[in-house]
């Protein structure tokens, strides 16, 4: 298997604090790779550096063999990276369908088109509705986004990530703040898309991670201390000491 993403000696500090400390990581094409680690380990900072929200201080991010560490976010998106946000990041003023349709539109040629009403372009709408169906939100399509529940927002995030048909999906705690039932629903959704996309998943919900991941990396103080299959990680002493043992 080839590596779609290789991170080499990545460093990022804020003031004196090293959020990312000589981080090395490879993600194979097609796998669901989970990153776990205690709070403040630098997981979201890592995702931001991968998606382009923050620039690393030093190090390389090779995506399909090409260093993208200096690229702005919109360029990385066009290369095939998408992300979801831990803190829901939707366009609250727009309808649910408009949010998803915009994400579909992003992958449908350039958007400097001024004449036709976007809402009348059926292939954008149809695809958006299809995605909403996939995350079980079809009946909410015409609602205002702001009126939806937290769980529904999380699923919208997933639909947007799916809409891009990106080669690499960065999912930042899709289960954050979800109740038991909703978490189960999300796990099933992720199981459904797993294998069709390469996914880098950050998640606190250990049951979900061990149920879904092909491989797991453990991030502690900005550094990867172990990578392996769920079984390997479960048995790894350093991991137990640094992380699981504290639970």
């Amino acid at each position: 298997m080839t590596d779609i993403l290789q991170i080499q000696s990545l460093n990022k500090s804020f003031g004196g604090i090293k959020a990312t400390d000589d981080l090395n990581l490879s993600v194979q094409t097609g796998e669901l790779h989970a990153i776990i680690g205690p709070n403040g380990a630098g997981k979201t900072t890592l995702i931001s550096q991968l998606s382009g929200g923050q620039k690393p201080d030093t190090g390389k991010i090779l995506f399909k063999g090409r260093n993208i560490a200096g690229q702005p976010a919109y360029k990385r998106a066009s290369l095939g990276i998408t992300r979801s946000y831990q803190i829901t990041s939707l366009i609250m003023e727009m309808s649910v369908l408009d949010n998803i349709a915009l994400a579909v539109q992003a992958g449908d040629g350039h958007s400097f088109r001024f004449l036709r009403p976007a809402r009348s372009i059926s292939h954008l709408r149809d695809r958006a509705l299809e995605l909403l169906k996939q995350v079980d939100l079809a009946e909410k399509a015409d609602h205002q986004t702001v009126a939806l529940s937290h769980g529904e927002h999380r699923r919208m995030e997933l639909a947007i990530a799916l809409a891009s048909e990106a080669d690499l999906m960065l999912l930042d705690e899709p289960m954050a703040g979800l109740g038991t039932h909703e978490s189960h629903q999300m796990v099933e959704l992720l199981r459904g898309i797993k294998g069709r996309h390469t996914i880098l998943l950050i998640e606190h919900d250990m049951d979900a991670v061990f149920a879904l991941a092909d491989r797991i990396s453990v991030l502690v103080y900005g550094h990867i201390i172990a990578t392996g299959t769920p079984a390997e990680i479960r048995d790894n002493e350093a991991v137990q000491h640094a992380y699981l043992g504290e639970e």
């Binding site: 929200g53 998408t82 939707l90 366009i91 727009m94 891009s164």
Partner: peptide, 10 residues
């Protein structure tokens, strides 16, 4: 509404 999201979308 959300410039960061729009950049992430490409």
């Amino acid at each position: 509404g959300n410039p960061e999201r729009m950049a992430t979308l490409g």
